[in-house]
């Protein structure tokens, strides 16, 4: 996984709540069998609207998405994370994320960080007033900074440690292979098995 310590980049204000993963990437774009190439699908139906924020050239090259509450609800598709990353996003900020989206994001190295709604609104205002304002997201300090604004964000300790170190989950778990084998030994034999 890609390591994450501090990131600075321009931000896009996405003034919408309940952005579901069908909006982030519609189902018709899920047919690839690879982990990349999903950038075209990102917000595909909204991007057909010329007034949609990502079609505003002033936000080209932005890497921080500042979204309304309940970002990433709905389908568990990790393609939503891949599409955001392929498009160039490294951070999403919101007051609330859906559980599966957040877990997928943190596993894939996309920092989904929780800030207060008033911080979201301050960032929206700052970025809309000057699109070139850089936003800095500092995982070491758990802090978002933009101009004079500095706000803390929430991310659980374990996820933070893994991101800072860029550790691979499967590798971490396999360190406990003996525990898994011991569990399998004592596990109930009443549960079903499906031999091929």
């Amino acid at each position: 996984m890609q390591q994450f310590t501090v990131h600075s980049g321009r931000a896009v204000p996405l003034r919408r709540s309940n952005v579901d993963t069908d909006q982030i990437i519609p189902a018709v774009y899920l047919k690839r069998v690879t982990r990349s190439g999903f950038a075209d699908g990102l917000f595909a139906s909204w991007r057909r609207d010329p007034d949609f924020i990502l079609n505003d050239p002033r936000y080209d090259g932005a890497s921080v998405l500042v979204a309304g509450p309940d970002f990433g609800i709905g389908s568990s598709r990790e393609h939503a994370v891949w599409a955001l990353q392929d498009y160039g996003f490294r951070v999403v900020l919101s007051v609330r994320f859906a559980d599966i989206f957040r877990s997928n994001a943190l596993k894939g190295g996309l920092l989904a960080a929780v800030i207060t709604q008033s911080a979201v609104e301050r960032l929206w205002e700052l970025v809309e007033a000057d699109q070139s304002t850089p936003v800095t997201v500092d995982l070491t300090e758990r802090e978002v900074r933009c101009g004079a604004l500095s706000v803390p964000f929430e991310v659980d300790d374990y996820a933070r440690w893994r991101l800072l170190e860029g550790l691979d989950d499967i590798g971490l778990t396999l360190r406990h292979d003996a525990d898994i084998a011991a569990y399998e030994f004592r596990r109930s034999n009443l549960f079903p098995a499906v031999p091929v």
Binding site: E78, V81, S103, N104, K107, D156, D169, I170, T173, L174
Partner: peptide, 19 residues
């Protein structure tokens, strides 16, 4: 429900690391 990274994790280890 889980994401694809977790699918890979379960395939490889038959476990998940969860809070």
């Amino acid at each position: 429900g889980i994401g694809t990274s977790e699918v890979e994790h379960v395939l490889a280890t038959q476990t998940l690391a969860l809070m």
